[in-house]
Simulated scan of single mutants.
Amino acid sequence: MLELNALFFAVAGPAVVFAGISKGGFGSGAAFASASILALILEPGLALGVMLPLLMLIDVSTLRPYWGKWSWPDAKLLIVGGVPGVALGALLYQVANADVFRLLIGGISIGFVLWQLTQSRGLIRAAARKLPAWAGLSAGLVAGFTSFVSHAGGPPAAVYMLSQRLTKTEFQATTVLLFWVINIVKFIPYAALGMFTAQTALANLLLAPFALLGAWLGVKAHRIVPEWLFFRVTYVLLTLTGSKLIWDALT
Results as ranks from 00 to 15, higher is better:
residue 251 T to Q: 12
residue 41 I to H: 09
residue 133 A to I: 00
residue 58 I to A: 01
residue 40 L to Q: 15
residue 196 F to C: 09
residue 191 A to K: 14
residue 88 L to A: 15
residue 218 G to M: 10
residue 126 A to T: 11
residue 86 V to A: 07
residue 145 F to G: 00
residue 193 L to F: 13
residue 251 T to N: 15
residue 187 F to R: 00
residue 23 K to F: 01
residue 42 L to M: 14
residue 23 K to Y: 01
residue 202 L to R: 14
residue 231 F to H: 15
residue 178 L to W: 09
residue 3 E to L: 10
residue 39 A to M: 02
residue 62 T to M: 02
residue 239 T to E: 01
residue 174 T to R: 12
residue 188 I to Y: 13
residue 142 V to A: 14
residue 185 V to Q: 05
residue 45 G to C: 00
residue 124 I to E: 04
residue 182 I to F: 04
residue 68 G to P: 13
residue 2 L to V: 13
residue 86 V to Q: 10
residue 83 V to N: 10
residue 34 S to A: 15
residue 26 F to T: 08
residue 190 Y to L: 01
residue 166 L to H: 03
residue 54 L to P: 07
residue 55 L to G: 11
residue 197 T to Q: 11
residue 250 L to F: 02
residue 133 A to D: 14
residue 242 G to T: 06
residue 111 G to H: 05
residue 5 N to Y: 02
residue 146 T to D: 04
residue 142 V to P: 09
residue 225 V to Q: 07
residue 129 R to V: 06
residue 209 P to E: 11
residue 91 L to G: 02
residue 181 V to W: 13
residue 227 E to M: 03
residue 101 F to Y: 15
residue 177 L to I: 10
residue 86 V to L: 07
residue 164 Q to L: 07
residue 143 A to C: 10
residue 103 L to A: 12
residue 38 L to A: 10
residue 120 S to N: 06
residue 103 L to W: 15
residue 21 I to C: 03
residue 39 A to N: 02
residue 10 A to G: 11
residue 58 I to Q: 00
residue 103 L to R: 08
residue 103 L to N: 05
residue 127 A to Y: 14
residue 110 I to T: 11
residue 60 V to H: 02
residue 219 V to N: 12
residue 110 I to N: 08
residue 91 L to D: 00
residue 192 A to M: 13
residue 163 S to L: 05
residue 7 L to D: 06
residue 197 T to Y: 12
residue 94 Q to P: 05
residue 192 A to K: 04
residue 159 V to N: 03
residue 72 W to N: 00
residue 21 I to P: 08
residue 108 I to H: 10
residue 235 Y to E: 12
residue 190 Y to T: 00
residue 78 L to F: 01
residue 95 V to N: 00
residue 222 H to P: 03
residue 117 L to C: 02
residue 222 H to M: 09
residue 29 G to E: 06
residue 171 F to S: 05
residue 242 G to Y: 02
residue 207 L to V: 07
residue 185 V to F: 13
residue 122 G to Y: 11
residue 136 G to V: 01
residue 13 G to N: 00
residue 39 A to C: 05
residue 247 W to E: 13
residue 76 K to G: 00
residue 178 L to K: 05
residue 178 L to D: 06
residue 75 A to Q: 08
residue 159 V to F: 12
residue 214 G to C: 07
residue 12 A to Y: 11
residue 92 L to V: 15
residue 96 A to I: 10
residue 56 M to F: 11
residue 39 A to W: 05
residue 192 A to R: 11
residue 174 T to G: 07
residue 237 L to H: 03
residue 104 L to F: 11
residue 46 L to Q: 15
residue 77 L to Y: 04
residue 153 G to C: 03
residue 207 L to K: 02
residue 109 S to R: 06
residue 118 T to L: 14
residue 169 T to M: 08
residue 224 I to Y: 03
residue 251 T to M: 11
residue 152 A to L: 01
residue 94 Q to R: 14
residue 45 G to V: 04
residue 190 Y to V: 01
residue 131 L to M: 15
residue 207 L to S: 01
residue 244 K to F: 14
residue 241 T to N: 10
residue 244 K to P: 00
residue 186 K to D: 13
residue 101 F to P: 12
residue 220 K to E: 07
residue 123 L to I: 06
residue 68 G to A: 05
residue 209 P to H: 05
residue 226 P to S: 09
residue 8 F to L: 14
residue 79 I to D: 14
residue 226 P to T: 07
residue 103 L to V: 07
residue 199 Q to D: 15
residue 140 G to L: 09
residue 135 A to L: 02
